[in-house]
Simulated scan of single mutants.
Amino acid sequence: MGTRIEHDILIEDAQAGQRLDQALAALLPDYSRSRIQQWIRQGEVTVDGRQPRPRDKVASGQQVTLRAELEEEQRVSAEPIPLRILHEDAHLLVVDKPAGLVVHPGAGNREGTLQNALLHHDPTLAELPRAGIVHRLDKDTSGLMVVARSLPAHTALVAQLQARSVSREYLALVSGCPVAGGTVEAPIGRHPRDRKRMAVVERGRPAVTHYRVETRLRAHTLLRCFLETGRTHQIRVHMAYVGYPLVGDPVYGGRLRLPPGATEAQRQALRGFHRQALHATRLALDHPDSGERVRWDAPMPEDMQALIACLQG
Rank of each mutant, 00 (worst) to 15 (best):
I5H: 04
L10N: 09
I11F: 07
G17M: 07
R19T: 10
Q22L: 10
Q22D: 13
L28P: 05
P29R: 12
P29V: 14
D30Q: 15
R33A: 13
R35Q: 15
Q37R: 14
Q38S: 09
W39Q: 03
G43N: 05
Q51Y: 08
R53W: 07
R55I: 09
K57W: 01
S60Q: 14
R67K: 12
A68L: 03
A68T: 11
L70S: 01
E72K: 10
Q74P: 00
R75A: 15
V76M: 06
E79R: 03
R84K: 11
I85W: 04
D89N: 03
H91S: 14
L92E: 08
V95I: 15
D96T: 06
V103H: 07
N109M: 03
R110C: 00
T113I: 08
L118D: 01
L119C: 08
A126D: 05
A126C: 06
L128Y: 05
L128N: 04
P129M: 07
P129S: 06
G132N: 06
T141A: 11
T141Q: 06
G143R: 09
G143D: 05
M145S: 05
V147C: 07
P152S: 11
A153P: 01
T155N: 01
R164P: 11
S165H: 10
V166F: 10
V166R: 09
S167M: 10
R168K: 15
V174S: 05
P178M: 03
V184K: 09
P187I: 14
G189S: 13
G189E: 11
R190Q: 14
R193F: 14
R197A: 13
A207P: 06
R216M: 02
A219I: 01
A219Q: 10
H220A: 00
T221M: 02
L222V: 10
L222Q: 02
F226M: 12
I235A: 05
A240R: 14
G243I: 08
Y244E: 02
G248P: 05
P250R: 06
R255S: 13
R257T: 15
A265Y: 00
Q268V: 12
R271L: 14
G272F: 03
F273P: 01
H274A: 07
A280E: 02
A284V: 07
A284G: 15
H287R: 06
S290G: 03
A298P: 00
P299V: 12
P299I: 12
M300K: 07
D303R: 00
D303I: 02
I308D: 03
I308H: 02
I308P: 02
C310F: 00
G313R: 13
